[in-house]
């Protein structure tokens, strides 16, 4: 056995919501990594094919919403011959447990990967309590 690990294909998961969308097309969940350090919550999402201007990130009532729209005009005049994955818009929401400073949310898109930095508000940061 070699230590090399072959990558497996991840099947795209479809978004399931209570409400239906007005457009009958399918929407997929971007795969996500979430980690936290003392100052911020970091959310990393894979949204291949989505351009910077077509991403919408918002925090409302403690819920982080990420939407990415695919520019499907690139698929114009293309006839599928052989396909292994489907394409669609991306959408995902996370309920946040710690208070986020909305004005300082940072977002960076690189190679189809969106990295969000959600800084915690001062009160939510861990602090060491001095015992007198």
């Amino acid at each position: 056995m070699t230590s090399r690990q072959e990558l497996q294909v991840q099947q795209k998961r479809e978004l399931e919501t209570k409400e239906e969308t007005t457009v009958p097309a399918r929407t997929f969940l971007p795969t996500a990594d979430i980690f936290e350090d003392e100052d911020a919550l970091h959310v990393v999402l894979e949204m291949p094919g989505v351009e910077k201007d077509n991403i919408n990130v918002s925090v409302r009532e403690g819920v982080l919403n990420i939407d990415g729209r695919l520019d499907f005009s690139k698929y114009k005049d293309l006839q599928p011959l052989y396909t292994e994955y489907n394409v669609g818009n991306y959408s995902r929401s996370f309920r946040l447990w710690s208070a986020i400073d909305q004005n300082k949310i940072g977002a960076e898109l690189r190679d189809g990967v969106l990295s969000l930095t959600l800084p915690k508000v001062e009160e939510a940061k861990p602090r060491t309590i001095q015992i007198k």
Binding site: Q8, L78, P80, L81, Y82, T83, E84
Partner: peptide, 28 residues
Amino acid sequence: LDAQLSSDWLQDSTASRGGFPPINLFQQ
């Protein structure tokens, strides 16, 4: 794209069908 998922256009000619990364092939 869905309709083509079952297409046998390439048949067994891919060395590793279903492998990473997923590929879509179009005619232009």
